[in-house]
Design a binder for these strands. Structure first.
Lengths: 121, 121
DNA sequence: ATCTCGTTATGCTTTTTTTGCATAACGAGA
DNA sequence: TCTCGTTATGCAAAAAAAGCATAACGAGAT
């Protein structure tokens, strides 16, 4: 396989919406995964390298449009508090992960099929 | 088929990149189509309901990262000038159209497969 | 040779969106 | 009652997008 001088490649975003508002995409997916793993919004933000303010805003928006509760939060206590995903949020997250896993590969396959034999696209 | 109280649905964007920079997505696709149809950037902008400034900026950015010339422009003359797509740009546009046509349907199909039997997602 | 006209080309202002800082509120456990 | 690290927000700063106004252009008409 010779190197191609044309470096065009395909990228994609797949997300879920409710009533025209974004519900869950790649960014919030990683955020929910991090919250689930760490048990707090703040720790998740640190793990992702984003500000707590940004993570909190993302989750607030998510919860505002989700048709069910997403997080269970606690304040105070020895650890200061924390946040966990509801069972429904875990199902949503899992289904989204399954959805995009298959789609990514399919897009790449179709890209090659359409752009492989033609250098200029 | 009963109505679902959960209105979650899937959306997607597929675009081409070169070296991390966006080359061609849905917006520029429509813009190129309009330029091809009308023969000028200004007429294309009017047809799409966007400002000429915006259309022109989009095309400038596109040409800056495309590995080949995209438009042939003319100034002056009876009509004042105009713009046309190069042969390579037409091929790129056509291939992009073919790519996304199949992908859209595939994403919808996979969405239904993953989200159909589960209301909460 | 000059004028005309509708286009391409671009600087600059305004608006909108995003990002980030700083700080208040909270409350279970010590 | 005090402490501590979290959740919760107001507000400012920065970045990005949108839009206004105007210059530059040059083939054809005069």
């Amino acid at each position: 396989m010779q190197k191609k001088h044309n470096e065009i490649y395909v990228r994609s975003k797949i997300w879920l919406e409710v009533a025209g508002q974004p519900l869950l995409g790649g960014g919030r997916e990683r955020l929910l995964q991090a919250v689930e793993r760490t048990g707090s919004i703040r720790a998740a933000a640190i793990e992702l390298g984003i500000s707590y303010r940004r993570a909190w805003s993302q989750l607030r928006d998510l919860e505002n449009i989700a048709p069910f509760a997403v997080l269970e939060r606690t304040k105070g206590g020895k650890g200061g508090g924390g946040a966990r995903l509801t069972a429904e949020a875990k199902v949503l997250l899992k289904n989204y992960e399954s959805l995009i896993n298959g789609v990514r590969a399919e897009i790449d396959r179709r890209f090659v099929a359409h752009f492989a034999e033609s250098d200029e696209g």
